[in-house]
Design a protein around this nucleic acid. Structure first.
Length: 294
DNA sequence: ACAGGATCCTGGGGGC
DNA sequence: TGCCCCCAGGATCCTG
């Protein structure tokens, strides 16, 4: 479920609720396996530590325990919320962390269990995990030159490219579609065929869309809630995602939905022209030079 | 190198 | 009410 804006919202919500709190107990509240295996040996390493900070890296949440780092991925249906101890434990709650002083608990829930919770011994170990996973740069501080270079090296389409966390971290299905609309680029456009100007436009569009979404506390379609249990508001601002058959907010043309990179993809066929396929309709294949315009 | 499909799971919605 | 099928904010592995 959660992409960068949702994860960022969780982190911002949790920050005042967990920082400075001491972990007085840790309990696994289900025996079901998560995406990455949990180890009970981690409990002893967490108890009595205080939460020094909480941060986001791509779609990952990093809880700083003053040495060890608890690294959490929400997968599709994950929730990480602070709740009072007396509130009933919701279904599919996998981990409960007691916070002191007070009676609050940090709870991790995940119905589909595509998420994970992993303890690393140090900041360096957590960072090595991201490095080994080849996690791509953050959209907000992506060097445009590097971005253009990375795009120029792949013949994949833009939709698949934006979903690739090693190329850019944090973008998922919703914000890929919304960013491509913002940039007026067709999701099937080959990344390497973008002109430098188009590549710049795309990065700016991603940043603009993500910024607006963060401002609205992300998007809630089904399960997502922030760290305090509050839903998001950006789902009301979608311009293409989930709007198949509805009018394009720019030109009124019906939004089209197709399947790309294995995911539902929404776009405006009028605003988001695929220069490649348009040009291909006359000749057979198009040389790279043909794309220098636009 | 890359596309496409299957897979890991559960729940919700639509059609019948 | 129930059943069946399809779909879902992700990521990874396998095949062609």
């Amino acid at each position: 479920m959660p992409e960068l804006p949702e994860v960022e919202t969780v982190v911002r919500d949790l920050r005042p609720l967990v920082i400075g709190k001491r972990i007085s107990a840790v309990r696994r509240t289900s025996t079901k396996a998560l995406r990455r295996p949990w180890s009970d040996a981690w409990v002893a390493r967490m108890v009595d530590r205080s939460v020094a900070g909480i941060a986001r890296r791509g779609k990952w949440i990093v809880l700083d325990l003053g040495g060890p780092r608890l690294v959490i991925h929400l997968g599709m249906t994950g929730q990480l919320v602070v709740m009072p101890t007396e509130s009933p434990l919701a279904d599919h709650t996998h981990l409960v962390i007691d916070l002191a002083p007070g009676t609050d608990q940090l709870r991790f829930r995940d119905a589909r269990r595509f998420g994970s919770v992993t303890l690393f011994d140090s900041a360096a170990d957590a960072e090595a995990f991201f490095t080994e996973g080849d996690l791509g740069p953050e959209p907000f501080d992506y060097d445009p030159t590097v971005w253009r270079q990375r795009l120029s090296k792949t013949r994949r389409n833009l939709k698949a490219t934006l979903l690739d966390q090693t190329l850019i971290s944090g973008v998922g299905n919703i914000y890929a579609d919304e960013s491509l609309f913002e940039a007026k680029l067709h999701p099937e456009t080959i990344a390497a065929d973008l002109t430098p100007a188009q590549a710049d436009r795309l990065l700016k569009a991603i940043v603009a869309v993500l910024t607006r979404a963060v401002d609205k506390r992300g998007s809630t379609i089904r399960n997502y809630v922030g760290g305090s249990g509050l839903a998001g508001g950006y789902q009301d601002e979608f311009r293409v995602y989930g709007r198949e058959g509805q009018p394009c907010p720019r030109c009124e043309t019906s939004i089209v939905a197709g399947r790309l990179a294995g995911r539902a993809s929404h776009y405006c066929p009028a605003c988001q022209k695929n220069s490649r396929s348009v040009r291909q309709s006359g000749s057979r294949k198009v040389s790279r030079q043909d794309h220098q315009t636009d």
